[in-house]
Design a protein around this nucleic acid. Structure first.
Lengths: 251, 251
DNA sequence: ATTTTAATATTCGTCAGACCTTTTATGTTT
DNA sequence: AAACATAAAAGGTCTGACGAATATTAAAAT
């Protein structure tokens, strides 16, 4: 364990202590799963009170850097960087920006169109049989007539995630999951009519077939067309909503 | 202001309160820049103590959801979602994963190669004169013989950021900045020799020219080749480092 | 009358020490 | 040897207080 327990100079104490410990973790001076001193001990060594130590630790826990357990074998431990936890953090951050309207719909659609086309190319090169099976599952589910709108959207999301998964590329998966998830609130605005549903299922089938055939360019182009299609439906939905707003002002 | 001050059921109190407030913010029940009750008031309404309230608020502050100021006009306020703050969060998260070796170098390079090629295509379509000027600046800087290794790397990063910027697409910028930044620690391992530096400058010039000419496919291919080149140099550097490790075991 | 200065109230930031809850380890009993 | 009871360790929470920063207000000086 290597930590400096003085050097405190200016700013909120809790913040400074959090920064010190975070830096120690990021620089590897605190190993993964290593146990920090007890809160009492930290307070003593930093020369601050325990509540302040706890505020600092809460910050680090919120960033998934540490975890705490009670009991004699408990204490505060350095977390192993976890892809899933990181994915959640990135997704939440992106979702917040999208939800608060910090991006235009157009640029979101454009971003998704291009990045998912890229995923198709990578997926065509790297897909496994399991990936193809996962896509097939969602295609079958999506084809069921009795599916509710919510279940239809959820399955649609899972298909796109399956394509991302098939890229076999960790960093790409990390970023794309965030992009797809943060887009959900907008896609959920859509109300799919029957013939639109059939179009979606057909598009998914063609995309899967191209990926299965390792035809990267066809898969990418099909995905672009598919997202473009979604944009058209989305535009209509938005237009309808605006008309409704003007006519029946029931806000 | 709409907040439920009871419904506490199970789990850490601080955690629960943080979740309640976070949900209220995310659902828009607490408007941007709205002021929450004072910490004393929150403690009273939630039926908990002020230190616990503070732990909850620290968590939310760590997630950039709120800010606090002292004084009579002070208090706790809801933050406006900020692209820069979000970019920092995402970058830090990705950097942690990369730094702790949760991704293979190969998949990082592959991800960067494909995503930056994509950026070139978008940049060719959307670049402004200012974007081209920013790229030209970094090219000029990178050509200077006297540049230190650190400054060379920094300028290289800024060129790639300029390309990303030229896409004019917010979500893409968000994700790509994270990818480029998190890759820095690895690129910094490189020691560029003179002829490698010249190759880099030449590659940047060609990429910029293709983007200026709105030649998307050429720009994309040049970027792929450029990143591929970096990978080659990187592999050599890694090989050298491994040899050094075996010979001079000074750990 | 206006500007400068001082007092004051408000709110976050920190502190001290105590008690509660959970969890593990130990030791006793059967 | 297994089951149970007990104690100790550590985080989780509470109470009450004081310190520090800052906006408002009042007072004073120009």
């Amino acid at each position: 364990m290597s930590l400096q327990y003085d050097e405190i100079v200016r700013g909120g104490l809790a913040r400074q202590v959090a920064d010190l410990i975070r830096t120690a973790i990021l620089e590897g001076r605190l190993a993964v799963d290593e146990r920090l001193p007890t809160e009492d001990e930290l307070a003593r060594r930093f020369g601050i009170s325990r509540p302040t130590v706890r505020e600092a630790l809460k910050v680090l826990a919120a960033q998934n850097l540490i975890r705490s357990r009670r009991g004699p074998a408990g204490g505060t431990f350095v977390n192993r960087p976890d892809k899933d936890a990181a994915a959640r953090t990135i997704t939440d951050t992106a979702t917040l920006l999208v939800g608060m309207g910090r991006f235009d719909i157009d640029e979101i659609v454009a971003a998704r169109m291009e990045t998912e086309a890229l995923c198709c190319r990578l997926a065509a090169a790297n897909r496994s049989e399991a990936d193809l099976a996962a896509m097939a599952d969602e295609i079958a589910l999506l084809g069921e007539e009795t599916l509710s709108d919510e279940d239809f959207c959820a399955s649609d999301v899972r298909f796109h995630r399956a394509v991302v998964q098939a890229t076999g590329n960790g960093p790409v998966q990390l970023m794309m999951h965030a992009m797809i998830e943060s887009f959900i609130p907008i896609t959920n605005m859509l109300i799919y009519r029957d013939h639109e549903r059939r179009r979606t299922v057909a598009a998914h089938q063609h995309i899967r077939a191209a990926i299965a055939a390792r035809d990267a360019e066809t898969a990418a182009q099909l995905m672009r067309d598919h997202v473009e299609d979604m944009r058209t439906v989305l535009d209509q939905a938005l237009a309808r909503r605006n008309i409704d707003k003007r006519q029946g002002g029931t806000s």
